[in-house]
Design a protein around this nucleic acid. Structure first.
Lengths: 134, 134
DNA sequence: CTTGACTCTGTACCATGGTACGGAGGTTAT
DNA sequence: ATAACCTCCGTACCATGGTACAGAGTCAAG
């Protein structure tokens, strides 16, 4: 069996509500191959914990900066044997995140200084254009 | 005078090359109000250090997570007197960046663990779907 | 056994931040 | 002075990640 038969009990609307996304978003993910479209046994399609789990993963992976295409690949990989590829995707993202975090940290510090600068005087311009010059 | 008359000597192509963006991007920024469109005195429009500076600012501000619309406002504000608004924009972004940085850091740590996990064994799946469960 | 809510499917539309293209005109190197 | 290349302008198109809507079918409560 391709999937446990337990608790396949949610309609798409309930699944969407449980995951905190819109119904249309779920259908969009199905079209993009991130979620499978269950068979229409009892006339209306039913979803379960499996799908909810994937939706949670999708949210976290998006926050980590993966594109939907990469997330699709990760979800495919989850069931499979290709540890090398999985590792590759994860490592590449770690590298990208390290760079991104450093960049955001620098930007944050610049803006913190700018805000302080703007807070000091009460009239005249504060040096916005210069704010990112180190 | 609205702008120093010095060294207004770049064509749009040179300006684009100097800033590391495409010509079409500069025209797009003009349409969006982030750059002004110089008069057509000597038949072809000329740009200067002023514009290059703005383009550098735009890049940094984008990296800081401002939208083009916010950047447009910041550029307007740079010349003006509204320190309160400038401070507001900067402070809001600092807050957002602090949250974002923390989120990315958590994601990074999860992915680092996943990569290590995938590197350990040589066969079988590694726990991708579970990777963001704390 | 009807009424109202939900589902299904296909297709269209949206925001953001660009990128490309066509045709007319300006500019520069040889 | 002419070819090769740039600029100008309007408009169209692109990717990403959704969001909306119409029309037909299904389901559940009273």
């Amino acid at each position: 069996m391709v999937q446990s038969q337990a608790a396949q009990s949610l309609t798409i609307g309930k699944l969407a509500a449980a995951a905190g996304v819109g119904v249309e978003t779920i259908r969009y993910y199905q079209r993009r191959g991130l979620l499978q479209t269950p068979a229409r046994d009892r006339e209306v399609r039913r979803y379960g914990a499996h799908d909810l789990r994937r939706l949670h993963f999708i949210r976290q992976a998006q926050a980590a900066g993966f594109t939907l295409e990469e997330i699709r690949e990760l979800l495919d990989l989850d069931a499979g044997e290709d540890r090398r590829r999985a590792r590759e995707l994860a490592s590449a993202r770690v590298t990208a995140l390290d760079e991104k975090i450093a960049q955001l940290q620098r930007a944050r510090d610049s803006l913190k200084r700018l805000a302080a600068e703007c807070g000091k005087g009460t009239s005249g311009p504060c040096p916005i254009l210069a704010s990112f010059d180190e």
